[in-house]
Design a protein around this nucleic acid. Structure first.
Lengths: 213, 213
DNA sequence: AGTAAATATGACACCTCAGTCACGTTTGGG
DNA sequence: CCCAAACGTGACTGAGGTGTCATATTTACT
């Protein structure tokens, strides 16, 4: 995943803007949708809330998006690109997988803390159209799996079912983010990263225990 | 958490049934709400869908519940009691914490596979009233934390920040359940449990590596 | 059996909100 | 400078759905 490369596709299909003004307006509406869905939630948020926030009329909305559901789809795709790009950038200089996990987790917690809307929009999308949600995590998971496979090949991590590991790791990050980056920041990210790092380096069991082949 | 003990509180407050018939009707409505919310989702499901499923008239619903939101609250509380009771029963005979984690994870995956509605109702409740959701996981987490603290005291697991661990472990189980118990059961639960057990016993890093005091 | 409280009914009032449309305004290529 | 296409507007409508209420039926106790 190259950094600095425009990962986000230009909008296409019906409703794609054809002038500079159109592009600006579409972007404003999308931005407004992010904060409106993010703070009010998808169902409480009306299209009129979005257009008011964007400073356009109701009808303008439908010049660019087929409806409320489609703008959510677009939004999730957009936000997904952003997180992945950000995490990839943070992780690229790690010397091994364990270090990459540490950097990645910290970056994710920080990202979530700075962009709290991501979580809500994403999780709520799950119940509007499950395929949007699966697409996000499967895309995320594919990249993650590739990195774990590399690490296995290099002998940096134990061999094992990396696909299962990916889902376990994504779940961990997700819950830690919800609890410590969104709900309460009563535990420093350093402590969280240290705790998880210890789990990755030594497991949960006492040292030297259960080392049968 | 004693098994076989009625953990679920009897309904109280306004709308509490006062005859046997009333209690039956209330229970039928709650049951219907579970399957209706579970399959259609909270927002798509109408109160009329619930009452039709329960075989009662619209108005009957409001004899027992203040509204759509309150029955969701009740439902989450109810389902939370059930899962916790079930997991506690499965875990109670484990010989140490590591074995308890294995049994607990497998039991959770099986429970979710048999009760797919739990996930949807719970996750969706998050956006209707966040406190319902937090209450569920904080209750779950308190019990979990107590068990990890015991295990630390007994020297069964490494010392570390158990609270952070609890959230990491809950997140893992959650995502593994979503992916492998609800979406696709293409990986046997045995493999999942084995993978996670290996993580707990040895970590992710290669054996013998990173063992500095 | 008689009676008051509890429970059941379902039509309906009322409101929210997504999406439409006929008509103005701006843009940009020729 | 012209004009066709692109863009912007906001009042309106029609569907969907929550909660109410006057009335009917059942329960439980005497």
């Amino acid at each position: 995943m190259p950094i600095g490369h425009a990962d986000a596709a230009a909008p296409s299909g019906p409703g794609a803007p054809k002038t500079a003004r159109g592009a600006r307006t579409r972007a404003r509406i999308l931005k407004a949708a992010e904060s409106t869905f993010g703070s009010l939630g998808y169902h409480r948020a009306g299209v009129s809330d979005i257009t008011r926030d964007a400073g356009v009329a109701q009808g303008t909305f439908y010049n660019y998006f087929a409806g409320k559901e489609e703008i959510l789809r677009e939004l999730v795709r957009d936000m997904g690109h952003q997180v992945r790009a950000r995490l990839a950038a943070e992780v690229v200089h790690a010397r091994d997988r364990l270090e990459a996990e540490e950097k990645g987790l910290r970056a994710f917690l920080e990202y979530l803390h700075d962009n709290p809307y991501l979580y809500r929009v994403l999780q709520e999308a799950q119940f509007v159209d499950e395929s949007i949600y699966r697409e996000y995590y499967e895309a995320f998971g594919r990249g993650y799996l590739r990195m774990l496979a590399d690490a296995t090949r290099k002998g940096e991590i134990r061999s094992g079912n990396n696909e299962v590991r990916v889902w376990a790791l994504m779940g961990m990050a997700n819950f830690l983010g919800l609890r410590y980056a969104l709900w309460d920041d009563d535990v420093p990210f350093d402590d969280i990263v240290a705790t998880i790092s210890d789990l990755f380096r030594h497991g949960l069991a006492m040292d030297g225990q259960e080392r049968n082949p």
